[in-house]
Design a binder for these strands. Structure first.
Lengths: 279, 279
DNA sequence: CGACTCATTGACGTTCCTCAACCTTAGTGG
DNA sequence: CCACTAAGGTTGAGGAACGTCAATGAGTCG
């Protein structure tokens, strides 16, 4: 049923916009929604039962970002940390010659702007792929907040650590030499990412266009089309523009292994037994 | 001068090993070296003047890792966090079919094992590329430590944030479609990384072999050889096996922009005058 | 010295990037 | 209602780039 595609965090269709989303007129939050520390910790994945331990005084503003709008600008002075509450973003870096690269995508529970802690400025821009909402935390108050609310702190740390792991996965996706394998890995990773957020891992709704996927994977966008075609012809997927259903996950995983020929032998194994046998 | 290649953190040559490095015999630290919190914070890049504020009671053990030895095993229960003090590591992930992927490399000041905070186990293995030393922090004591030593905490946070930014850079390196551009970006990034650590940005000593570089970049190792050859022929580099000198950074950066089209042709020049004339 | 790893170079074949055309869907205005 | 425009997606043709296979040489370890 179509209901599997519907989630509490996603609007029914890309073209349908809730009326409270400000689109062309940048009229700032007239009705500033806020959430408390307890909800924020929960959003970050902290135990819901944690609420009792924390002082619930702080309130954080929720920002609405219309589709296509830029949440943070690359190179801008970093002052805020954002947690995606609903919707999705693409993270983009622009080279000095104007060429853009899509670093990745951010979904509910992801943190945007954490790189502001290391430098002065944001390292990349974040553009909303659909009407979205984020929780805004002033960077300046972060240290104090973490000190005062250990449970929130733990949740934040876990998210960042997870994001670091995630970055490794992205590198892995990109390392595949064959275009088919790259796309397969991307889809598998996306599927896992959705599952992690309690959504269906079989039915995916691609919030980004082919060009963004291609850019992200370092491929031509025509190649994305062709690879998707190949996979649907093989019976692995069912694709309808942005809607995607994974029919044969095993085949997809098998495809994701392709280096571009026979996989390479691992000469590392010849070194380890020395230590193993020493015992 | 050759002194630009010499740093306090690097052994003079790959083939020269300090005698105190245990090689084939895994005899554990008989003489356990330790450092205090003050030195650790400094290693992480925290202000050296910070020493006064922290309680200097804690001491952390320094582990020696021989070349080729594995510091952390993928999938092993995560119990420690390591900070690289000297030497270098490659971070490797092994797929279920035995195929290995080099996620990246870790140098002095980098943190290994931070992903243990999110899950139970390490997400990837770390193998020493040369005889190296790391500072070991028990994950269990991390929360308490951060609470007690805010300056250490801040330094650690900054490092992690930097590593997150760094992960984005890796994705950017990999996104280049042309092999030349990928290698160029890798070299530029490596150069910047070395400069960040106070080493020369022109003279690089490649601690990893061609196969690892190729694996990391998603290319064939023969392609690495050929690309390096092309760059030396063009006068951009001087390469002697593992020693590498960047002669023309500008050309390298220009190459890094290539999507794949004409190997060289810089359309940048044809674009700029338009803006110049507009003034 | 023999076994091994590492790097380089050449030849060949396939992938996939580029260029191009065409189609659908949306949004706009008559 | 239909033209018009623009953005996104698909498909085809051609050629360069790069992966694979193979051979060679240099350096290292036991």
């Amino acid at each position: 049923m179509a209901t599997t595609l519907m989630t509490s965090t996603a609007p029914p269709l890309l073209t349908a916009h809730a009326s409270w989303f400000v689109r062309s007129s940048p009229q700032p939050q007239a009705d500033a929604v806020q959430i408390d520390l307890r909800s924020l910790t929960e959003l970050l994945g902290g135990a819901p039962g944690s609420a009792a331990g924390e002082t619930g005084g702080e309130r954080f503003s929720v920002r609405r970002v219309a589709r296509g709008a830029t949440l943070v600008h690359e190179g801008a002075r970093a002052s805020m940390l954002y947690v995606v509450q609903a919707g999705s973003f693409k993270c983009v870096q622009t080279a000095e010659d104007g060429y853009e690269h899509v670093l990745g995508f951010a979904w509910r529970r992801d943190v945007i702007g954490y790189d502001g802690l290391s430098g002065e400025n944001y390292a990349f821009a974040a553009v909303a792929l659909e009407d979205s909402t984020v929780v805004a935390l002033p960077l300046a108050s972060l240290a104090v907040l973490r000190q005062r609310a250990p449970l929130f702190d733990a949740a934040l740390q876990a998210i960042v650590a997870r994001q670091l792991t995630h970055a490794g996965e992205i590198a892995r996706v990109m390392s595949a030499v064959a275009a088919n394998a790259r796309l397969a890995r991307f889809l598998i990773q996306l599927s896992a990412s959705m599952a992690e957020r309690g959504q269906s891992s079989r039915h995916l709704l691609l919030r980004m266009n082919r060009r963004d996927i291609a850019n992200h994977l370092g491929l031509a966008h025509e190649t994305i089309s062709r690879s998707l075609r190949m996979m649907t012809d093989a019976g692995w997927l069912r694709v309808d523009i942005r809607e995607l259903e994974i029919l044969d996950p095993a085949a997809l995983r098998r495809c994701a292994r392709n280096t571009r020929g026979p996989a390479e032998a691992t000469p590392l194994a010849s070194r380890q037994p020395v230590l193993a046998f020493a015992a």
